[in-house]
């Protein structure tokens, strides 16, 4: 009649199936598509990611060298990562941390200059990189 008895008594003696979450965290799976980030120094601001994105969450200002992703619109599909021609987009294997207010993922880099102005651009690049790391 009560076929569940065996199961519950086994559980009573056995191990826990749950975790005390904030204290004990399961290591992330390697392939997990977590938070999106851009190696901004490699980025050429070609806009392929923004065009391919199904949720249109990436916006790029080519002039200012601004790469912005709205993490609240992002669906973590990883299409942009595959679309990137210079492989500068990556996904971390952990999810984005809990935030108390809405904030965008904003990264500032240097857009590639036309060939003749390349020399001027190099001088500005290190400063821009520092900003991006913040």
């Amino acid at each position: 009649m009560a076929f569940m008895t065996g199961n519950v008594l086994r559980n009573l003696m056995g191990k826990y199936s749950t975790r005390l979450y904030p204290i004990e965290i399961r290591p992330a799976f390697e392939a997990y598509r977590g938070e999106l980030y851009n190696e901004i120094e490699k980025c050429i601001f070609c806009q392929s990611c923004a065009r391919k994105c199904p949720s249109q969450c990436i916006s790029i200002d080519k002039e200012a060298g601004l790469w912005t992703c709205d993490p609240f619109a992002c669906v973590y599909c990883g299409i942009c990562v595959e679309a990137c021609p210079v492989n500068c987009l990556h996904m971390k294997s952990t999810h984005r941390h809990v935030a108390t207010e809405r904030e965008m993922i904003e990264q500032k880099g240097t857009p590639p200059k036309p060939k003749k102005k390349a020399a001027d651009g190099e001088a500005a690049a290190p400063a821009a990189e520092k900003k991006a790391k913040k």
């Binding site: 519950v8 008594l9 826990y16 199936s17 005390l20």
Partner: peptide, 10 residues
């Protein structure tokens, strides 16, 4: 507590 253990929870 005992119920939770029977369902293998904390």
């Amino acid at each position: 507590k005992v119920t939770a253990r029977m369902q293998s929870r904390f």
